[in-house]
Design a binder for these strands. Structure first.
Ligand SMILES: NC(=O)c1ccc[n+]([C@@H]2O[C@H](COP(=O)([O-])OP(=O)(O)OC[C@H]3O[C@@H](n4cnc5c(N)ncnc54)[C@H](O)[C@@H]3O)[C@@H](O)[C@H]2O)c1
Ligand SMILES: NC(=O)c1ccc[n+]([C@@H]2O[C@H](COP(=O)([O-])OP(=O)(O)OC[C@H]3O[C@@H](n4cnc5c(N)ncnc54)[C@H](O)[C@@H]3O)[C@@H](O)[C@H]2O)c1
Lengths: 232, 232
DNA sequence: ACGAACTTGTGCACCCATTCACAAGGTAAA
DNA sequence: TTTACCTTGTGAATGGGTGCACAAGTTCGT
């Protein structure tokens, strides 16, 4: 019904989960899924599934459910999954290498096409099949491979400079793992993944529950949560 | 004022950021911080800082600001940062090794004390100074090192089994990187970090903005956001 | 002693997201 | 065709979080 309206941020953040849940149905099959089933597959509740899907349009059949294949197509379209968005990884250290070497990103349309590092021993070589360039080559690498996303996996001190260089090169989507606040222009989409902060949130609940002798007393109704559920 | 009440989830998720922001002030110094300054350091706005801190109690001085050292102490106390929470990493592959090798966790009170893997070539050896055990040793490793947190970095197929074993061993805090929905008992605190999902959220905005010719038209007021801002 | 300049703490209004509950619409069997 | 049963789509209630705006309290210079 709502096929043109704005999709709420919270919904956008869940669409990839639905898409992942639909993986259990073979492509080209004629399976139907109910909101209840899809909710179980994605780890949310059924009402949320129905409301989320209603923002994409009316693709279900009352009394029956959703056609799995068609639903996959529509969610993919909304997310723009048909596109391929090449990634450049900045900082080929512990984390950068793990990310660059991970096949799951390319499978979802985000191939790592190049890496940037300042270490002279790494520049010019290939690490796990990814060519490593010096920072000065960033602009040409971005242009050559049509890079759409930059990942920052440099030490925190170098992160802001790296972000600036990515922005200068025309990148508007950045994912950073550096535990530091980055400043970027308004039109740049920045997602900061701070694993130490995540651990400290776990630590808060541990602390609280141990205070009262083991029982979890924190009072939260829903403790199991996808990290990154924050909007946009 | 509010020194005993429940602290909202959104606030808990920001406390680590404030703590990190306070790092710029030397320990033992007599510096004061205004909510405005701290907001800039943490990447949020000043009203939020003041409201968040008010849940911990009234530690500021009107007309002056907050004593940086004392504030650090109080936030640390609320988060239980004085405690040390040992971690076991399950799955010493690309990602597990990067995590185990990362010094930033131990600095914040989360030392990686052991690893679990099923690969016979890894069991019994030390990787980057971390001893690797087989899954059957999990319970004894947990008991011996007082492990409080389990990190799941196994392939997705092995993730649920690993979660079950962690729970059996008495772990109540789990951080998972496997792109799959995990089921754990209610009293277990599970945080799922799904990087492919994060990338797809970036992709959604890329898709939307490119549709209209480069201008960002998505209409979100605040695009720069800390991933993991979701409650609990 | 007093006023100007600051900064905190918080009541309040607003917004977004979640969840319920049910009418509307569809299937299938008799 | 009718009846029983199922599931979607969505108003409406609820709740949590955000941010404004300002009173209350503190410092500093005169
Ligand atoms: N390793 C982890 O598991 C982990 C976990 C959480 C956060 N992080 C964060 O991720 C970042 C990377 O961590 P790491 O463990 O891989 O660090 P690392 O030291 O192993 O690697 C950093 C890499 O960045 C390169 N580098 C330095 N300056 C650069 C620049 N200006 N441009 C490009 N490359 C540059 C270095 O040469 C090195 O190869 C850090 O900010 C860290 O705090 C890492
Ligand atoms: N590498 C990345 O950057 C990245 C990014 C996002 C998500 N992930 C996810 O993180 C997980 C790990 O990724 P990876 O790249 O390190 O994979 P990997 O294949 O390099 O490593 C997996 C490790 O887990 C071990 N393992 C297998 N079954 C096990 C079990 N039952 N118990 C303990 N260990 C077991 C394997 O022996 C191997 O060492 C995967 O679920 C992946 O989807 C990884």
């Amino acid at each position: 019904m709502n096929s043109i309206g704005r999709i709420p941020d919270a919904t956008v953040a869940r669409l990839p989960l639905y898409l992942r849940g639909l993986d259990v149905f073979p492509v080209g099959g004629a399976a139907t899924v109910s909101s209840e089933e899809l909710a179980a597959l994605a780890g949310v509740n059924a009402a949320k599934v129905r409301k989320d899907l209603s923002y994409l349009g009316t693709y279900g059949t009352r009394g029956v459910g959703y056609d799995a294949d068609f639903l996959r197509f529509e969610i993919s379209r909304a997310l723009g999954v048909a596109n391929t968005w090449p990634i450049v990884v900045c900082g080929m250290g512990n984390l950068g290498r793990a990310l660059a070497n991970h096949s799951g990103f390319a499978e979802r349309g985000f191939p790592v096409v190049a890496a940037i590092d300042t270490d002279p021993d790494k520049i010019g070589v290939e690490i796990d099949g990814i060519a490593v360039y010096g920072p000065s080559a960033l602009a040409s690498v971005v242009a050559k491979h049509d890079v759409a996303v930059g990942i920052i996996a440099t030490p925190p001190e170098a992160a802001q400079g790296t972000a600036d260089r990515l922005v200068d090169a025309g990148i508007t989507s950045i994912m950073s793992f550096a535990p530091i606040v980055l400043t970027v222009p308004d039109d740049v989409d920045l997602r900061a993944v701070d694993l130490a902060t995540e651990l400290q949130i776990l630590g808060f609940h541990l602390h609280r529950s141990r205070l009262v002798g083991g029982a979890d007393v924190s009072g939260d109704r829903e403790r199991d949560l996808l990290v990154g559920e924050g909007p946009v």
